[in-house]
């Protein structure tokens, strides 16, 4: 209760400070509009179907990119993590490709696919892939040696070993990777729209900037923040649910 009250005070304080900055003339309201104006604009946007269409486009790029990246990362990560030869052979390549900033690929994606969803997907998938891939490799390699030897002496087939040994070990890693990837994918879905110009929230942000529509711009920034918050919350929840049996989650529930 105390926490909620204090948190609400913090939010309120922020809004008051935001209101006071243009009110006292510290910054021209043309550049930093009043929060009340932004809120009014947001309410207006929420009634506009075009806004929801743009939101859907952004979230489609996000969801598709995240799903493709996760799928590829799980398949490749499991193969690389389980086979020591592949791990050794791919190590330098992975370490070389991973730090390459995904936005460096934007010009290439534009040339190849034009101002379309596919160009944005290249960026989103590239950025999200590494987050999951690295975690899967760690997770798959983390199988307890005693458990592995036991499984082998009991004659578990390869399939059974994957199902009962590798999957439970790697799942917490995978969930962490997917949670991180979800946040990164959202960032790049919006960024791609801003820079490439495929339709979505990001492009609206860029359009309101070039039109000098500060109120609309701040409103959209708030919307993307709320989206990010939502994505974080949902994935944290999914992580807790799917790992309810796991030590790290169970121990948190003890008093």
């Amino acid at each position: 209760m105390r926490k909620v009250l204090l948190g609400a005070t913090g939010l309120l304080g922020f809004l008051v400070v935001w209101h006071l900055i243009p009110a006292t003339g510290l910054v021209d309201p043309q550049y930093l509009p009043y929060p009340t104006d932004v809120a009014a604009r947001l309410l207006q946007e929420f009634r506009d179907l075009a806004f929801w269409r743009r939101l859907r486009l952004t979230m489609t790029a996000w969801a598709l990119g995240l799903a493709l990246a996760t799928l590829a990362a799980v398949v490749l990560g499991t193969a690389v993590g389980l086979v020591p030869f592949l791990r050794r052979a791919t190590h330098t390549t992975v370490e070389f490709l991973r730090p390459v900033p995904s936005v460096a690929l934007i010009p290439l994606a534009v040339l190849m696919f034009g101002l379309q969803l596919r160009a944005a997907l290249v960026i989103v998938v590239y950025a999200a892939f590494w987050q999951v891939f690295v975690q899967v490799i760690y997770g798959v390699a983390d199988v307890d040696t005693v458990a592995r030897d036991t499984a082998r002496s009991f004659g578990l087939t390869r399939r059974e070993r994957l199902r009962y040994l590798v999957l439970p070990t790697a799942l917490p890693y995978l969930m962490t990777g997917v949670r991180l990837a979800a946040a990164v994918a959202l960032i790049l879905a919006v960024t791609a729209e801003m820079v490439i110009g495929n339709p979505g929230l990001g492009r609206s942000i860029e359009l309101s900037r070039s039109a000098g529509d500060a109120v609309g711009l701040y409103g959209l920034v708030v919307v993307t923040g709320l989206l990010g918050l939502l994505v974080n919350l949902v994935f944290r929840l999914v992580e807790r649910r799917s790992l309810a049996w796991h030590q790290s989650v169970r121990s948190e529930e003890l008093p």
Binding site: A183, I187, V190, T191, M194, I205, S208, R209, A214, G228
Partner: peptide
């Protein structure tokens, strides 16, 4: 939670 590149237009303003 705000995607950081979104702040570029704000900073430009």
């Amino acid at each position: 939670a705000i995607p950081p590149p979104v702040l570029i237009p704000v900073a430009m303003l």
